[in-house]
C-alpha cells in the first residue's frame, strides 16, 4: 500500500517536471493566426499614412483603445510604455495603437495624446480612420482572442496586446492591463527577434 502511494507521488512529480520543461524548453513561439491578407489604410498622429507596408520586415505589437476611455486604457498605455522603452532603439520593432472612437480621436487629438506620452511617431503609431475599417481589422487581429472572450463587445475592450511577426503572423496575446503579462510579452519579443 505504502509503496503504491510512493509510486503515485513519483508519477505526479515527473508529470509536473515534464510540464515545466515543455514550457521553458521551447524557444519558438506558436503561430496563432495571420493578418497577411489584411488590407487597411489609416493615418497616424503625424497625419502620415499607415498601411501593412509600414510594418514590412518588422515585428509589432498592436492594441485598441480610445483617448477618453476611463477604464483600462490608461493602464494599457502605461504597460505599452514599458514595451516602448525596452525596444526604443531596436528598429525592427514597432507599436501600433488603433483608436476605436475615430469620431472623437482625430489626428490632432491623437497627436496631443502621443505628445503627452512623449513617444516618437515612427516607433509607436497611434492611428485613426474609418470606423468600420478599424473594427474589421480588430476582428482579424483578435481572431483567436475572440474565442476566449465571453463578455459581449469583449474583443476590443479586452485590453489585449497582440504580437505580430515579420511575416504578419499572430504569435501571441497578452493582457495589456497586467504587468506580469507585459513582462511575458517583452520576453516573447526577444525570442521572436532571435528566431
Amino acid at each position: 500500500m505504502k509503496a503504491k502511494h510512493f509510486l503515485y507521488l513519483i508519477a505526479i512529480g515527473l508529470f509536473v517536471v515534464s510540464c515545466e520543461n515543455s514550457k521553458t524548453g521551447s524557444n519558438k513561439l506558436p503561430v496563432l493566426g495571420t493578418v497577411e491578407e489584411a488590407q487597411y489604410q489609416f493615418v497616424n498622429q503625424d497625419s502620415a499614412e499607415v498601411s501593412p507596408k509600414t510594418f514590412e520586415n518588422k515585428i509589432y505589437v498592436t492594441d485598441f483603445f480610445f483617448t477618453t476611455c476611463p477604464t483600462i486604457c490608461p493602464t494599457m498605455k502605461q504597460q505599452m510604455l514599458r514595451v516602448y522603452e525596452e525596444f526604443e532603439n531596436n528598429e525592427n520593432v514597432m507599436l501600433l495603437s488603433h483608436t476605436i472612437d475615430p469620431q472623437h480621436d482625430t489626428v490632432g487629438v491623437l497627436r496631443t495624446y502621443a505628445e503627452g506620452l512623449g513617444i516618437a511617431s515612427d516607433k509607436w503609431m497611434m492611428v485613426t480612420g474609418d470606423k468600420k475599417e478599424i473594427f474589421d481589422i480588430a476582428a482579424k487581429y483578435m481572431v483567436s482572442a475572440l474565442e476566449d472572450e465571453s463578455q459581449p463587445g469583449g474583443l476590443v475592450h479586452s485590453g489585449a496586446f497582440v504580437l505580430i511577426d515579420q511575416n504578419k503572423k499572430i504569435r501571441g496575446y497578452y493582457d495589456g492591463t497586467k504587468e506580469m503579462e507585459t513582462n511575458e510579452l517583452i520576453d516573447d519579443m526577444k525570442v521572436l527577434l532571435n528566431e
Partner: peptide, 15 residues
Amino acid sequence: QSCHMENGQGLRGVI
C-alpha cells in the same frame, strides 16, 4: 486608480 494609477503617479504627460 485606472487613470491616476495605484501609486498616484498618473500617466506621463497625459494624466
